[in-house]
Design a protein around this nucleic acid. Sequence first.
DNA 1: CAACTTATCAATAGTTCTATTGAATAACAA
DNA 2: TTGTTATTCAATAGAACTATTGATAAGTTG
Lengths: 222, 222
Amino acid sequence: MGSRQAKHALFEAIAMMGKAFSSPRRLELLDLLAQAPRSVEELARASEQSTANTSQHLRALHAAGLLTRTREGTRVVYAFAGEDALGLWLSLRDASVAHLGEVERAAREYLGEEVETIGRAELLERLREGDVVVVDVRPEEEFAAGHIEGARSIPLEELERRLAELPPDQEIVAYCRGPFCAYAHEAVRRLSAAGRIARRLQGGWPEWHLASTADPQRREER
Amino acid sequence: MGSRQAKHALFEAIAMMGKAFSSPRRLELLDLLAQAPRSVEELARASEQSTANTSQHLRALHAAGLLTRTREGTRVVYAFAGEDALGLWLSLRDASVAHLGEVERAAREYLGEEVETIGRAELLERLREGDVVVVDVRPEEEFAAGHIEGARSIPLEELERRLAELPPDQEIVAYCRGPFCAYAHEAVRRLSAAGRIARRLQGGWPEWHLASTADPQRREER
DNA sequence: CAACTTATCAATAGTTCTATTGAATAACAA
DNA sequence: TTGTTATTCAATAGAACTATTGATAAGTTG
């Protein structure tokens, strides 16, 4: 036992996982994939980088075991490999917010002025009472890939046009991709401007989903 | 909203946290610090690298907000910055085991033959019944920095010499630094060879500690 | 103050990582 | 088969990271 070499090999192997999270480009891809599985080309377009480069990064994430890869005809679709992988990404992101001032600053810069929020617990309560409308303001495909039960899909661009669909006397809760997604912020601002009572859900679909399915605190037995 | 530049800055900032986990040397330091706070020199010795190099890596981990730094006379002591940071390291490590065959293989190689284990729930039960002895086989300083309540400290090197301290008719549970620490494996082998009934606790002190203090599933509200 | 211990800084060579380009491959359809 | 689309591969130049060395700084002790 205690062989230095074996120990080094062990840490080297674990570092592969760490390296997966060490490039901003890769993190951007993870952030997109947290919403829904996507093809290389879609991801390349969404993150504004070349297909070849996107493909390489996806390959790296796949090699680290974070993503699955499925061929669909001529396209290749990548998706998160499981809830632990998704959870790890969210934890890393949250930790960076908690510990790095830069992240907080960059987030404020990106998101603009803060709006009123509502937490998971309170929303569940209000849903039970039935006096609230939940609106998913992400693109339709992401809604289709998974959404909060009972929510209706109104992508941000269509919000003003479809305002009549929302009952004028009920509070509206908007949500989108997560804490760093600007859609819900913007939606609440526009709804308020239109005279509605609106709040933004803390977190977004991935956080909600994970909190709903989590058997809390399941650490690998070893 | 939607400024590409601001978005890139955000991911760039988050990637700082990821980069902290991308070097095997740094992971080795984190692994040591998960047991107890330590000075630069101790860490350098324990991980068999130069002081200058160790200092640089510690500086990087500190910059990522994972470690705290305290001057104590002529020494500088580093420690984990909080339970979320510790939890993040353990999650990353666990995910790498779950998803990367290399890690599993390297671990088996390093740890040698598997021994009988006991889980947290069962141990808690047995402790309540009082028919088990828990032995912490880590170095004494690590025991001093924190240990399972009711455990007694017998560092691995002293195990044979102090065998008489352990009641011969009770089952013994040994634990050490974690799933990749060879001490408990070795302790159980030696105890079995001495005719005792012994098992190894799944995980080690950091896992136990975190599971004991966790309010499960606390995601930053945003 | 001088000697000593511990830790950090600064410069650098070697290595690894990233983005880019253009070519190669896979699946499909005409 | 040929053409088309989507993805990956291979080579490469430039950027970032790592370990090493020797010098410097902070704090203690005699």
